[in-house]
Design a binder for these strands. Sequence first.
DNA 1: CAGGTC
DNA 2: CCTGG
Length: 376
Amino acid sequence: MSYKFGKLAINKSELCLANVLQAGQSFRWIWDEKLNQYSTTMKIGQQEKYSVVILRQDEENEILEFVAVGDCGNQDALKTHLMKYFRLDVSLKHLFDNVWIPSDKAFAKLSPQGIRILAQEPWETLISFICSSNNNISRITRMCNSLCSNFGNLITTIDGVAYHSFPTSEELTSRATEAKLRELGFGYRAKYIIETARKLVKDKAEANITSDTTYLQSICKDAQYEDVREHLMSYNGVGPKVADCVCLMGLHMDGIVPVDVHVSRIAKRDYQISANKNHLKELRTKYNALPISRKKINPELDHIRLMLFKKWGSYAGWAQGVLFSKEIGGTSGSTTTGAIKKRKWDMIKETEAIVTKQMKLKVELSDLHIKEAKID
DNA sequence: CAGGTC
DNA sequence: CCTGG
């Protein structure tokens, strides 16, 4: 079967599919080794229905090709959606040259490798990262796909591969149980997923909102980052690390650095970040007013987050993405055969990043406009 | 132990 | 604590 692909000019140093789709941000892109393309299901634009989307980067590495299966009449909508999903309004070259290299020597010997932060669907991001706790990427990938195939809706089957939607909070509450999830190998996270889905259904009803996406976006409205994180941590299985992942990748709070063991190691080893008694006391006082934060936040890790924000600025989360990729190197993703394979780290030759027309034409983000959360 | 949370 | 590499 062949499709009519749309095209988007984008240099590989600005976007490298292998480096962003299989590096632990998203867990549901399927890589077809033979066709050298990626596919998944996603909601396009403001729609609630899921479509199968196929992506590939051509040999010259300067064109991103895309198609939504069975939706060929609406190529522009997909193009607009992908520009938001990949955040093509943000130039990595600009961040390297004008922000990170001048302020951080570690970036001087690095170059943009097409590693960027995605704007993912927040509900899927929340559940995916609940699954990520104390876990490895290949199992997280299996779990996310298991949620879709067991509790999502069948969208279509292509070349023998069945594509499902990511289940909504209602679908999870009505179709899944903790016992069933345990059988499927979710371990102790089974309870977190069920309870989070239930609470989201309840929260949405109280807010009179039907869409998971819209609801989670609505908690950012007129809210500071600290309040958004407090709200996210009201869900079971969501601590500061998971909440920050949702803020960064699901709610596009670009300055948020999720602090895990790796980032913590980088911070101490390469940046000599360490909190003194005053710092920690200040943070404890600050979170005293927020009952859940007070309970869940580790002041020492939160201090690292703040110091890295100070170091890297309003796109600190993106800087973390770059360094993190370097730290853990290649990782695994799923393929059409279901096998989890080691991924080759996709290095880019040192070419001058070309700011494409699409980059200059800043994407209209009107329907995504969420009041920028203030970060200190 | 694995990109934490209870 | 679940599970698996």
